[in-house]
């Protein structure tokens, strides 16, 4: 048979019918001989009954209305938040800004490319550029100074003409390097120079 202390640990299980047949028989045997434990069982059943029959508290009639209002305000807050975010995106002229940015980048790129090419051309040109201070000697061996010649890239043939002219007239060209010329003399300039050389020679 179980003791009072052991029984007390099983009261709820016994009341809830959550004990084995064997334990139930043991408990009932104990209760039959113990008034204190019997009283505890009775009181526990009474308490359980009181609790079960307590008046059920219900939600007030306004409960659902209030809940709806809170949900609405919450949804509105979410909407406002989203609208604010959307508004802030919409209010900013995204497309023009992106267009302008792309334009600026393109412009910078073009300028950079042009600058690079120009510097390359210049450096190449400087490397191979002819010395424009041309000195041609006359028959007496005296140098005939030719003013600096502004050349263009199309003037290679013209300069070649100068070269051939100088050679055909027994002029010594000390500084004309036709192979490196990427510029040309303008026609009129060429004529002027030729005439100038002729005069000096005479």
């Amino acid at each position: 048979m179980i003791s009072c202390k052991e029984f007390q640990s099983f009261i709820s299980d016994y009341i809830d019918g959550d004990v084995s047949q064997f334990l139930k028989a043991e408990i009932e045997e104990h209760l039959a001989s113990c008034n204190d434990c019997s009283l505890i069982v009775k009181r526990t059943l009474t308490i359980k009954n009181y609790l079960k029959n307590l008046r059920k508290v219900q939600a007030s009639p306004r409960f659902e209305i209030l809940l709806r209002e809170r949900l609405k305000s919450e949804l509105n807050n979410v909407k406002k938040f989203n609208d604010k975010r959307l508004f802030s995106i919409n209010s900013f002229p995204v497309k023009p800004a992106i267009g302008a940015l792309v334009g600026v980048i393109a412009l910078i790129s073009v300028i950079t490319i042009i600058q690079n090419n120009t510097s390359k051309v210049e450096s190449k040109f400087n490397e191979k550029n002819i010395v424009s201070d041309k000195v041609i000697n006359n028959k007496a061996g005296q140098p005939i100074a030719i003013p600096p010649v502004k050349v263009t890239s199309q003037g290679l043939n013209n300069v070649n003409k100068i070269s051939s002219f100088s050679q055909s007239n027994n002029l010594k060209s000390s500084s004309i390097d036709s192979t490196g010329i990427k510029s040309s003399l303008e026609k009129n300039n060429l004529k002027d120079k030729v005439n100038y050389v002729k005069k000096k020679k005479d």
Binding site: Q8, I11, S12, D13, D18, T44, I47, K48
Partner: peptide, 16 residues
């Protein structure tokens, strides 16, 4: 849970 329910009921008996 079972132990707390058991003890809780006994405590309520004392209080009531």
């Amino acid at each position: 849970v079972k132990s707390r329910v058991n003890r809780g009921r006994l405590k309520l008996q004392e209080k009531l």
